[in-house]
Simulated scan of single mutants.
Amino acid sequence: MPLPVTALYAALLGLVYAGLTLLVVRGRFGTGVMLGNGEDRGLHRAVRAHGNFAEFVPIILILIGLGEGLKLSAFLLHLLGAGLLVARILHAIGISREPDLRPARGGGAILTLAVLIIASLAVLGRALTAINVLG
Rank of each mutant, 00 (worst) to 15 (best):
M1T: 11
M1G: 11
M1Y: 11
P2E: 05
P2A: 11
L3I: 02
P4F: 11
P4E: 05
P4Q: 07
P4L: 12
P4W: 11
V5Q: 02
V5R: 01
L8V: 10
L13Q: 05
L13F: 09
G14V: 07
L15I: 08
L15R: 07
Y17P: 01
Y17L: 11
G19F: 14
V24Q: 04
V24M: 02
F29D: 04
F29C: 00
F29T: 09
F29A: 11
V33Y: 04
V33T: 04
V33R: 01
V33S: 01
M34T: 03
M34Q: 00
L35V: 09
G36I: 15
G36H: 14
N37K: 15
D40A: 01
G42L: 10
G42T: 13
G42W: 12
H44M: 15
R45D: 05
A46N: 06
V47H: 10
R48L: 06
A49F: 15
A49H: 10
F53L: 06
A54I: 03
P58M: 10
P58D: 08
I59N: 06
I62E: 09
I62W: 09
L63K: 01
L63A: 08
I64A: 09
G69D: 05
G69W: 13
F75Y: 12
L76Q: 04
H78Q: 08
H78D: 06
L79A: 04
G81T: 03
G83Q: 09
A87H: 00
A87N: 09
L90Y: 07
L90F: 03
L90M: 12
H91Y: 06
A92T: 00
I93K: 00
I93N: 07
G94T: 08
G94Q: 05
S96M: 07
S96R: 10
E98H: 08
P99K: 12
P99M: 09
P99W: 05
L101H: 14
L101A: 11
L101Y: 14
P103H: 15
P103V: 15
R105S: 06
G106S: 13
G107Q: 11
G108K: 06
I110H: 10
L113E: 13
A114W: 13
L116Q: 02
L116S: 08
I118L: 13
I118G: 10
S120V: 07
V123T: 04
V123A: 03
A127R: 06
L128G: 01
T129L: 14
T129Y: 15
N132G: 11
L134Y: 04
